[in-house]
Design a protein around this nucleic acid. Structure first.
Lengths: 334, 334
DNA sequence: TTGTATGCGTTATCAC
DNA sequence: GTGATAACGCATACAA
C-alpha cells in the first residue's frame, strides 16, 4: 500500500495525497475528506524510510545512557518515553557502560541514524570538549551541567548537586556527625562525582571537620555490587564512621548491605544517606534518606528544550532543577 | 557523502562500491581494498533509509515491554541490548502500561517501523488469540509460554513457572509454614499470575493445606507501591500468616515494607519469598529468598530463536529455562 | 486547487 | 569484474 495506490483508489494524484497526509494547505475540503477516509479505511501509513530519505532526516531522538546499572537513568528513560509517546518522534535508546565515551558513541550513531536530536543521560566534560564539535544536531545533557561548555547546540538540565550535597553534609553535621565517610564515583572520570565531592569538601572545610579523601572517600561504580565492595574497603582502612554519605541510591543500598554484614545497624550504629530519590528507597528497611532529584521535571524540561531547538528556537539554555533532601529512617541524630 | 561520491573518488562505479560495502562476490581484491580504504578514510556509512527503502525492510527488532515498573523487564532489556550490540540489528524498545494491549500496539508499530522481528516481554494469551494473526514477522515471547498458541511465527522462552512455584510453596510447607499468604498479579488479566497461582494451588491441595483465594490471595500490579497496598489489604482481612509468597521481587519488597510498618519482622515473624531474582534482592536486609529466573539465558535464547527465524530457519520452538529457588535470609524454618 | 516530474541513496538486474 | 540503469515510496517545485 503506497500513496500511489491511494491515488488510484481515490482518483486524486499522489501530489494531492501527499499534501493531505502532511496537513498541507491548498487542498479542497472535499479532497481532504475523501483521501483521509480512504487512508483510514485501509490503515494506511506513510513509508518512513521513503519519507526520511526524501527529507534527509529521521524522526528519531537518540538517548545515550551512560551506565546501565544506574537505576536513576532507568527512571529517566521511562519518564522521557512517557513524554515522547504520542509525539511525532521516536526514541532510540542506547545503553553503554559508565566508562565508555558517550560522545564518540553519539558521533557514530548520528551518522547511522541521523537523529533530529540527542539526549545524554550522564556525560563527561572531557569527552564533550574533545569531540562534541563533530555533532551538529540539538542536544541536551541531563544530570550534568554544560553551562560552561562552549557549544551552541548543547542545553543542559541538572540539579544543584554541589549545593544539595553541601547542605546534606551540613545537616549531618548538625545532627551530631563528625566522622562521615563518603562513597562516590571515580572522580577522575565522573564530573558528577567531582561536583558532589566538592559539595562535601566545602561543608567539611566550613565546619572545620577533618576530611582526608585518601581515607574517607571510597570510589565505586554506580551499582549495588561495586558499592558493597567500596563500603567494605572504606571500613578496612581503619577509621570508623557515624555516617556514610553515598553519591547514589544504588550505592547507598550496596553500602547498607555491607554495613549489615559487618554487624552494624542502620541508623543505630551508622547513618546512611543516598542521592537520587529512587522509588525503591521508600520501601527498604530502614527507608533511605536521600537527596531526591525531580526525575519528572528533569525529563520534562529536557524534552521541552530539545524539541524547542529541533523546531528551530535556537536557544541554548542551562537549567537547574533543585534537588530536595528527604530525611527518612536511615539517618539519625546522635 | 554517498556511494556516488565514493565512486567518483575511487574511479569505480556505484555498483562496485555497493558490492564491496555489502561483502558480495565478483569484486577484484584490488577494487575491494581501494574502496574499503576510501570508505574508512572518510568514515563512510551507508544511508539506512535508502537501504531499507530499497530492500523493503528495516534492521529493527522491536521490543515490547509490558509493565514499565517491572524491574525484571528492565534487566531483560539490558541483557537483550548487550546481545544485539554489534549485530546488524537495532533495538527499538517500547514500554507500555501492564494492562495495555501489547498485540494491538505491536500491530501498529509493525506498520510504522517495519521491524524484522518482535520480542514481547510479557504478554497476554487473550490478546494474542484476538489479534496476533495480523502480525507476520518472526516473534518471540519471553517470560510466557506460547506453546499452545496456534501461531507458526511465535516462539517462546520462559521458565517452568508453575513447577517452580509449586516447589517453592512445598519447601515453605516443609519448613513448617501452614499459613501462607500470596501476593500476585491480577489473574484475570495476567497469564503469568494465573500460572503461578496454579502452582500455589496444587501445592496446597497436595499437602492438604486449606487455601482460600478470596482471603489468602491479594492482587497487585508489578510495582513496589501497589504491592505495599496489597500486603496491607491481605493483613486487613483478619488472617495471619507465617509466610508470604510474592509473584515478583518488586512485590516482595513492597510487602516487606508493609510488614515492617505493621511491626512485623522478616523472617522472625513472617517469611517472605519473591520471584525473579533481581540483583537488588541480594542487597536488601534481609536478603530476599526468591525464585530466580535466568535473565541472561532468557535473553540469549530469545535473541537466538528470533534471529534464527529472521534468517529463515522457520522453526517454531518453545523453550523452558528452569528457574532456580534461592533460599536466603528472608525465609526461615519455624 | 490539482497533476506531473524529479530526485533522495541505495540495491539489483542487466549488459558488457 | 565492472558499469549503466531502473526501481523503492515519498515530498516538492513547477506547470497547468
Amino acid at each position: 500500500m503506497t500513496i500511489k495506490d491511494l491515488a488510484a483508489q481515490t482518483g486524486y494524484s499522489v501530489g494531492t495525497i501527499s499534501r493531505v497526509l502532511n496537513n498541507q494547505p491548498n487542498v479542497s475540503e472535499k479532497a481532504r475528506k475523501a483521501i483521509l477516509e480512504a487512508a483510514a479505511a485501509c490503515g494506511f501509513q506513510l513509508n518512513t524510510n521513503a519519507q526520511q530519505l526524501k527529507q534527509q532526516r529521521s524522526n528519531n531522538i537518540l538517548v545515550l545512557v551512560k551506565g546501565s546499572s544506574n537505576q536513576l537513568f532507568g527512571a529517566l528513560v521511562e519518564a522521557i518515553q512517557r513524554r515522547v509517546a504520542g509525539s511525532p518522534f521516536h526514541l532510540v535508546v542506547d545503553y553503554m557502560d559508565e566508562d565508555h565515551n558517550e560522545v564518540l558513541r553519539a558521533v557514530q550513531l548520528c551518522r547511522e541514524k541521523k537523529p533530529q536530536g540527542l539526549i545524554f543521560l550522564g556525560g563527561n566534560r572531557k569527552n564533550f570538549l574533545a569531540d562534541f564539535r563533530r555533532i551538529d544536531v540539538p542536544c541536551v545533557l541531563i544530570t550534568s551541567d554544560a553551562s560552561d561548555l562552549p557549544f551552541h547546540n548543547l542545553c543542559s538540565v541538572c540539579c544543584d548537586e554541589d549545593q544539595a550535597v553541601k547542605q546534606t553534609i551540613e545537616q549531618l553535621i548538625r545532627m551530631g556527625h563528625r566522622q562521615i565517610g563518603i562513597i562516590g564515583g571515580y572522580r577522575e572520570r565522573s564530573d558528577t562525582s567531582r561536583r558532589r565531592f566538592e559539595g562535601c569538601r566545602q561543608a567539611f572545610i566550613e565546619h572545620n571537620i577533618p576530611f582526608d579523601a585518601e581515607l574517607d572517600y571510597a570510589s565505586s561504580r554506580f551499582s549495588y555490587a561495586d558499592s558493597y565492595r567500596a563500603a567494605k574497603e572504606l571500613a578496612s582502612r581503619g577509621r570508623t564512621y557515624t555516617a556514610v554519605f553515598c553519591m547514589a541510591d544504588v550505592m547507598a543500598m550496596g553500602a547498607m548491605r555491607a554495613l549489615a554484614d559487618s554487624g552494624l545497624r542502620v541508623p543505630e550504629d551508622v547513618s546512611v544517606v543516598g542521592f537520587d530519590g529512587l522509588a525503591i528507597g521508600e520501601f527498604i528497611v530502614p527507608r533511605l534518606s536521600t537527596v531526591s532529584q525531580n526525575v519528572e521535571l528533569l525529563a520534562q524540561r529536557g524534552i521541552e528544550l530539545l524539541r524547542g531547538n529541533i523546531e528551530g528556537k535556537n536557544i541554548c539554555v542551562h537549567e537547574i532543577i533543585p534537588a530536595q533532601i528527604q530525611w527518612k529512617e536511615s539517618a539519625k541524630t546522635i
